[in-house]
């Protein structure tokens, strides 16, 4: 099977959406446990975007976001990325630290470490669900974090897609906690899952 996302059929998209659903369901449960709060999630959206459109998906290429990137090894290889609006990241940190939600966050070492830990737990639970589903060994690395323009952050996984095609496969899940919105965007290079899964 060719690694081209341009011509995914309906069944393939459904499979991807279901994988996203199972993965993020697990991740949402894990997040709820850390935060000790109820976390809701939407049905994931599966989108195939041209590079020119990619940098606009988060509402603009220049808006500041926090990106957590993990590389994945095992039976498949690739990367997984988790993106948060910077405001959502501040709220998450404040919840974790037991501070008032509107306290100013300057992303010091402890706060960055706390966010990385969230990335670790989210990616771990997401991938372990996929691992169980597909019977593949999927091992995430320790996350790395960057705070910068959305376009610049997204370019990192987009470049990996660039090596194989002209579009990016994008599985997006939105997490909600009360009035606080946390957007989780998982970028996938896990094309091999689909190939083996079939």
């Amino acid at each position: 099977m060719s690694v081209n996302f341009d011509n995914l059929d309906k069944i393939q998209i459904d499979v991807l959406r279901e994988m996203g659903n199972i993965g993020s369901g697990n991740a949402a449960t894990a997040l709820a446990k850390i935060l000790n709060k109820r976390v809701n999630m939407d049905v994931p959206q599966v989108r195939v975007l041209q590079f020119q459109e990619v940098s606009d998906i988060l509402g603009g290429a220049e808006i500041p976001v926090v990106g957590l990137l993990l590389s994945v090894t095992g039976d498949i290889s690739g990367s997984i990325m988790f993106i948060l609006e910077d405001k959502a990241a501040c709220v998450l940190i404040n919840i974790l630290m037991g501070k008032p939600l509107d306290e100013v966050v300057n992303f010091d070492e402890i706060q960055v470490s706390a966010l990385k830990e969230i990335g670790n737990i989210l990616a771990g639970s997401y991938l372990s669900a996929l691992s169980t589903l597909t019977n593949l060994i999927i091992l995430p690395s320790v996350p790395e974090l960057a705070i910068d323009m959305a376009g610049a952050i997204i370019s990192v996984p987009a470049i990996e897609f660039g090596k194989i095609g002209d579009s990016v496969l994008f599985i997006e899940t939105e997490f909600n906690e009360g009035s606080t919105k946390v957007v989780g965007n998982f970028f996938w290079f896990l094309i091999l899952i689909l190939m083996k899964y079939y």
Partner: peptide, 19 residues
Amino acid sequence: MADLKASHHPAILTTLGLG
């Protein structure tokens, strides 16, 4: 991203979020 443009004067060419 993965795009290019050329233009006559007057123009401002911009690209957002180079990483």
